[in-house]
């Protein structure tokens, strides 16, 4: 107890000493600061008079570069689902001449990653680490923010999640497993998911299901797509599900839900349904 009191007193003493020395110091430093301030003002005044034009030009340049030269530009990719010439709507019946029966689509989602803009075959812009989930009932557009105006004549992208993201643990946003695009019984993203109904399918409730994925050779289903485009801010990409289904023998192939040679084949079939409007 006694020790504590002594200690406290000691600290107060020390504090007092410290403040005293601080006050002495601050007096002399205030004086110095004043001298410095006066001189600085004079210096700035003479400089401004001599180089007034130069200073003004510099000012204008800074403003211009901030607002115009490095103004980021946004390019928007619009994905338009189609059934032949019609726009594709969920749960609507469409007639297909090839199977001579009606078809309806219940869900359609796929990943778009690795977007490149090219000019004369050379890459001039690429998105870094961006992976977007396109969903017919939620999201059909991707925004690309470039640093400056770009001159391009071709767009390249992947349908699917690249293999580095397939093995690096859980991720959020469009890659969150709660989006229902991740296989739980065997690791890997579903790159392309199409579910629908047709009476030609001899399955429970006449459902057909394509859950296409697989990132390991020989069942790698990621597909690269290249499309020539005009140099415009809005790029409209149509994908025709009628075209996809016409390449498939739907009566016999209607349930592909795990990585296999079949899914690789189907991934190649949906890779050629994309076109620029």
């Amino acid at each position: 107890m006694g020790f504590c009191v002594f200690n406290k007193l000691n600290i107060i003493n020390l504090k007092n000493n410290y403040f005293k020395s601080y006050l002495v110091k601050s007096k002399s430093s205030k004086h110095l600061l004043n001298i410095f301030r006066n001189n600085l003002n004079r210096l700035i005044q003479t400089f401004a008079k001599k180089y007034l034009v130069l200073v003004l030009l510099l000012f204008i340049y800074v403003i211009f570069s901030a607002f115009y030269l490095s103004k980021p530009k946004t390019i928007i990719l619009f994905f338009i689902p189609c059934f032949g010439k019609e726009k594709l709507v969920i749960d609507k019946n469409y007639y297909s001449e090839i199977i001579s029966d009606s078809i309806s689509i219940q869900s359609l989602r796929f990943y778009v990653s690795g977007i490149y803009l090219l000019k004369n075959g050379k890459s001039i812009y690429q998105t870094k680490n961006q992976c977007n989930l396109i969903d017919i009932s939620k999201k059909l557009r991707i925004e690309i923010n470039t640093k400056s105006e770009l001159d391009f004549d071709c767009i390249q992208f992947n349908i699917g999640v690249d293999s580095s993201k397939q093995v690096s643990g859980v991720m959020g946003g469009d890659l969150d497993p709660m989006n229902g695009m991740y296989w739980t019984w065997q690791s890997g993203y579903i790159n392309f998911k199409l579910e629908g109904k047709s009476n030609i399918c001899n399955t429970r409730n006449n459902i057909f299901q394509f859950h296409i994925g697989g990132y390991q050779s020989p069942n790698n289903t990621i597909q690269k797509i290249m499309l020539p485009v005009k140099n415009e801010t809005n790029i409209i990409i149509r994908f025709d599900i009628k075209n996809f289904l016409s390449q498939i023998d739907l009566k016999n192939v209607n349930e592909v839900v795990s990585p296999s040679y079949k899914s690789v084949q189907i991934s190649k079939q949906y890779a050629n349904i994309f076109s620029i409007e």
Binding site: Q166, V167, S168, G169, V170, P177, Y182, T184, W185, Q186, S187, G188
Partner: peptide
């Protein structure tokens, strides 16, 4: 070895 990462492992029993 169906699961390639500890983060993804829990999904398997949760969904089974």
């Amino acid at each position: 070895g169906a699961i390639n990462h500890l983060d993804m492992q829990a999904l398997a029993p949760i969904n089974h």
